[in-house]
Write a protein that binds this DNA or RNA. Sequence first.
DNA 1: CGTTATGTTGACCTCCTTCAAAGGCTGTGG
DNA 2: CCACAGCCTTTGAAGGAGGTCAACATAACG
Lengths: 234, 234
Amino acid sequence: MKPNCTNPEWIGRAKCAVCDVRNFVLFAGLSVPELDAILQPIDNLHAAPGAVLYEQGAPAPSVYTVRSGLIKLKVDLPNGCQRIVRLLRPGDVVGLEALVGERYHHSAIVLQDADICRIPREVVIRLDQTSPQVHQALLQRWQRSVDQADHFITALSTGSAEARMARLLILLGCTVTDSDFVFPSREDMGALLGITTETASRIVAEFKRRGLVHMDKGSYIGCDQGALSRLADS
Amino acid sequence: MKPNCTNPEWIGRAKCAVCDVRNFVLFAGLSVPELDAILQPIDNLHAAPGAVLYEQGAPAPSVYTVRSGLIKLKVDLPNGCQRIVRLLRPGDVVGLEALVGERYHHSAIVLQDADICRIPREVVIRLDQTSPQVHQALLQRWQRSVDQADHFITALSTGSAEARMARLLILLGCTVTDSDFVFPSREDMGALLGITTETASRIVAEFKRRGLVHMDKGSYIGCDQGALSRLADS
DNA sequence: CGTTATGTTGACCTCCTTCAAAGGCTGTGG
DNA sequence: CCACAGCCTTTGAAGGAGGTCAACATAACG
């Protein structure tokens, strides 16, 4: 068995040179020698749901890239409530604020079994300065964060609770490539959409009754994309 | 009268070397010779409320820096509604997506008399590659966009309409340095907070009755920051 | 001075929250 | 294997917050 990031058994030093997602994550475009020079401080992590990558307000020494799984970025509000402001999926970069600031702005928590690379900020800063490709990729990731935040405003924080839920399911449905996909908890759905847990539960239950989503014992099977899209545009 | 960006009469070629906001906008850190080399294609614009810098989906040739005034970024939703996803103020950069993409993602519209510099994307891209200071400033501006978007999610799209309005007034209150500050229309407030125009009007009227905000014929005078903060944290 | 946008207010009703209780799944220990 | 606790989901009932539609007031403007 050769060490390979795609092997779930293998945790530890990342081998980005043989990493399947290398081509669409941060280091796309680097040559193998370039990669070797910076691989040492990079760690590959496998995290189960509930694992915390970092906490809001904590010192920010590292940036993370998501190789598989699903991560939520959560903000604690002054009144004690919580709001999820982003969902991060394979190819996304987490904690970019580490490159320009001292502390993380959110708490990053694993929602679905995740394979993650942790990269010291100094490594990324140096690469950003020496490699035009990495630099360009970095700008694109930053813009991607902005786009995702905008999507949370326009799609998940606007309109009726039903329409928001339909849009969330469409967003999540895009990730259904592996069959072990599981729904977020109703509580997380509420925090994603700015509604209560009960309302989230009611709407999902109603969708199931209407045949818009199919699931067996909590695990996702499929959904009626057309009907959901119609609800989303209402 | 020497040509100076801070002179409202003077519109046209920007003289960033003598620009008062140079030190806190994009080109901070550049030497005067460096500035001279890239000033030619930069235009200084003075825009009245309602002016459109660019439209959502249009080709994106330029980036803008805000020297004074207030700009809104608006998104048109599939159902015909509109949502404001950001407010941009002096020191902010507008249309960063031009640097990594072909088209603008929002419509940028002037809310309050604005003084703006329009910079061709090629100029910024070149500076980004040649000047470490500009490069660093660019990353910070991008992160700032993310932070502002997050703030729209957590502060202006979460909680009761009353609490959102209080947070919006606090946000706007920070800009009250000049006395010609004017409130956004109730319609814009609704689009900012994800509520209807009528609800926005009701809440503002109620705030005025309760003495939380003071205004004379639509022009802002002052507000009770303490009481607003208490409402915002409810 | 009429005309048109914008702000305000009322009445009604829908949607969502709140509080409460019941049902289901999982793990643990007897 | 069963009993029980704990957590999450579901559902109910009541109330309130906000949307909708309409009328009216006020300011802006030619």
